[in-house]
Amino acid sequence: MDSAHPMVVFTTLHSLAELVTRRRGLYVRWSHGPEPDLATLSSRDELTGVPLPGLSANALDVEDWWGDRSVRTWVARRLYDYSHLPHVKDARTRPWALQGTEVGRGPDNEPLVRQVEPLGWIDRSVINQANDVINHQPGPWGPMHRHGSD
C-alpha cells in the first residue's frame, strides 16, 4: 500500500453492502492496516506463536444459503462478530476491506488470504450502523468475544 495514495473510507453500511453485491473474494481484516500487513502477508496464531501462510480475515461474500435476505444485514453480522477487537487487542486495530485469495484456514477456521488488494478502511460509523442493525434482530446475538480466564 502506497502511503502517498491513501485508501478510500467506507462511511456507510449501505456502501459496503453495495460493494459486496458487486464483487466476490471480499474480506474484512482487523489490524493496523494494509501497509504493515502487506509487508509480511502473514498472521501469527496468538496461542502457539506459529506463523500462518496468509493474513487472517473474515469473509464478506454472501453465502448461497442466505438466499435473498438483506445483504446489509449479512455485512452487519460479519462486522459485528469481531467489533470487540479494538477493545481487547489494541486501540489502533481498525477494520479494512480487501479482496484476496484464500490459501488456507487458521486455527479458528478463519480464512487465510494472500494476493491482497486493499479496498478501503471501514469507518467507526459503519460499525455503529452494523451494531444498530444487529440490535434490531429478533434473536439474541453477541460479538465473538472470548475470555481466556472465564
Results as ranks from 00 to 15, higher is better:
M1F: 03
D2E: 10
D2S: 09
S3F: 06
A4I: 08
A4S: 11
H5K: 12
H5Y: 01
P6H: 06
V8M: 08
V8A: 09
F10L: 07
F10C: 08
T11C: 09
T12F: 01
L13V: 00
L13W: 05
H14P: 03
H14T: 03
H14S: 10
H14L: 02
H14D: 07
S15I: 12
S15R: 14
A17T: 03
A17L: 04
A17Q: 07
L19Q: 06
L19P: 11
V20E: 03
R22S: 02
R23T: 06
R24Y: 02
G25E: 02
L26D: 02
Y27T: 09
Y27P: 14
V28P: 06
R29F: 01
R29L: 00
W30H: 02
S31I: 00
S31E: 00
G33Y: 10
P34G: 15
P34H: 04
E35F: 01
E35N: 12
D37E: 14
D37F: 13
L38A: 14
R44I: 13
D45K: 05
E46R: 15
E46F: 08
L47G: 08
P53D: 12
S56W: 01
N58V: 15
A59C: 15
L60E: 08
L60D: 06
D61W: 08
E63H: 13
W65A: 09
W66T: 04
D68H: 10
D68G: 14
R69K: 11
R72V: 13
W74S: 01
W74P: 04
W74I: 04
R77T: 10
R78M: 06
L79V: 11
Y82H: 14
S83C: 15
L85M: 13
P86G: 09
H87G: 13
V88F: 09
K89L: 15
K89Y: 14
D90M: 13
R92P: 01
T93A: 07
T93H: 07
W96S: 05
A97N: 08
Q99A: 12
G100Y: 08
T101F: 10
T101E: 13
E102L: 11
V103D: 02
V103A: 03
R105F: 05
R105L: 14
P107M: 05
P107D: 09
D108V: 07
N109Q: 13
E110A: 07
P111Q: 05
L112P: 14
L112D: 09
R114A: 15
P118R: 15
L119Y: 05
G120A: 07
G120V: 04
W121Q: 06
I122P: 15
D123C: 12
D123L: 08
R124M: 05
V126G: 00
N128F: 05
Q129K: 07
N131M: 14
D132C: 00
D132S: 06
D132P: 00
V133F: 14
V133L: 12
V133D: 06
N135M: 11
N135Y: 06
N135H: 13
H136P: 01
Q137N: 00
Q137A: 11
P138H: 06
G139K: 11
G142V: 03
G142P: 06
P143Y: 01
H145E: 01
H145P: 00
H147C: 13
G148T: 11
G148E: 02
